[in-house]
Amino acid sequence: ETWKMSADAPDGNYLTQNIRAFADDVARLSDGALEIDVVSNSVLLKRPELKRGVQRGIVPIGEVLISALGNEDAVYSADAVPLLATTFDEARALWEASRPIYEEKLAEDGLVLLFAAPWPPQGVYMNREVTDAASFEGVKFRAYNPSTARLAELLGAVPATIATSEISQAFSTGVINGMITSPSTGVDSQAWDFVSHYYDVQAFLPKNMVIVNKGAYDGLSDEVKTALQEAAELAETRGFEMAEEATGEATNTMADNGMNVLPTPEGLASDFETIAATMRAEWLEQAGEEGQKIVDAMN
């Protein structure tokens, strides 16, 4: 049997490379009983269409950014809450805490959760130097979902909605002055061509997860299911390792290309703590008991 799989990022990204390795593992471990044909760069299904596309069986298996589902249920935003998890170890703990809850939710939607792999910790890209929250006054800061919009607001910046495709132009011409995203996205888009400063604030580590249509999964023989789960386990471990490696590499690449790669300035760090506390409280309010369960499980 051959499954088409929709991968989120373009080919050069380590997350997609991890997915391709996962596909190889599945073929190997199942002795060719299940082949996965990976199509990268969200060509088969765009990010907003991925989850329901897998639900509906358009593709049997797909990869999606977990926090993209945050508007559907706030509990999916756990890995986008600032400073809840800032290192890879914490990200792993957060994942272990949230996984059972997601599994249950996805099962209700007819989906099986296989594994997740993290993006690098999110940093702040600015076209000027900043020292603390006050330097964000009046800065037009890119917002693409409720939590980034709230973050911009709490920083005192002006949230600005800019489509992904227009980021480089918007920066070059000054439509926006700042954004928050991972160093690997910065490298993918060659951020040094349009932005000068990168602050490694390690705000949070978003993750992509791989989900399978329940009907397609149930149609597999027990041996193949085992092979799939085994490959998923390997992919998760490898994904975390690759992410850690990619983070260092990407940060260095930006510095090598002349960007000012800087640690969080002290003033900003303390302001950020306050903002994170506010946002965590707000998230807990929205995510309710399940959110509390995740936070409790982490400590």
Partner: peptide
């Protein structure tokens, strides 16, 4: 109809 039964919401700043 599926959007309705799945309670699909937009992923942007406003849900």
């Amino acid at each position: 109809h599926e959007s309705w039964t799945y309670n699909e919401v937009s992923q942007g700043v406003v849900a």
